[in-house]
Amino acid sequence: MYIKQKMIKILAISVLMLIGSVVATEDQQFSIPEGPQLGQPATAEEVAALSINVFSDGRGLPEGSGSVVQGASIYQSKCIVCHGAGGLGGSAEPLAGAKMGLTGEWPEKTIGTLWPYATTLFDFTRRSMPMTAPGSLNNDEVYAVTAYLLYLNGIVDKNLVLNKETLMQVKMPNVDGFINIYEQKKQKNK
C-alpha cells in the first residue's frame, strides 16, 4: 500500500513535469520538484544572530554566567507574578515543589521530576519567558534564573554559578525517563 502511494505521488509529480533531482537519504529515495533557486545567501553573522537553539549536548549555549542568588532576585521581579513564590501557586504552571513524583494517582510533572535536560530550561526561558516581555532577558540573566529554578527543584546547591560548562555538569533526575517512540517504530520497520 505504502509503495503504491509513493508511486502515485511520483507519477503526479512527473505529470507536472517538475521532476528535479533525486535525493538519497539513508533508507529512502524521493522525487523532488525543482524550484527556481531564489534563496539569498545568509552570512555567518546573520545566521549566528538568529540561532538560539540550545541542544542537549550543549551546542548553542552562549558565553555568560549567572548565580542562583542573582536568579532569585530576577525571579522575584519577573516571574513570580505568574509562577508564584518558590515556583508554586501562580496562574501559570508550577515550576518546582513536586512532592509526588511521576507514579501514582496524582503524578506531578515539573522541571525536577520530568524534564530530562537542563539545556531545555535555558533554551525555553530565553526564547519564551517572561510571557509578557519575551526576549527581554540577556544571557547572564537567563543563566541566573535557570540556576535558581534548578535550585528550587533541589537539583543544584545555592552556591552554583551557571555558565556553559557548569550547566553541562547538571544531571537531571529524569534523564533516563523517556522512551523514544519514533526510533522504536523505525527499528521495527527495518
Binding site: V54, S56, G101, T103, P107, K109, S128, F178, I179
Partner: peptide
C-alpha cells in the same frame, strides 16, 4: 533539539513513570 514542547509537554507519562516521547 529536545525543546520544552517535546520533553515537558507532548510526551505521554505511563503508569511505570516513564514517558513516551
Amino acid at each position: 533539539v529536545m525543546a520544552r514542547n517535546e520533553t515537558s509537554k507532548y510526551t505521554e507519562l505511563l503508569p511505570s513513570g516513564k514517558s513516551r516521547m
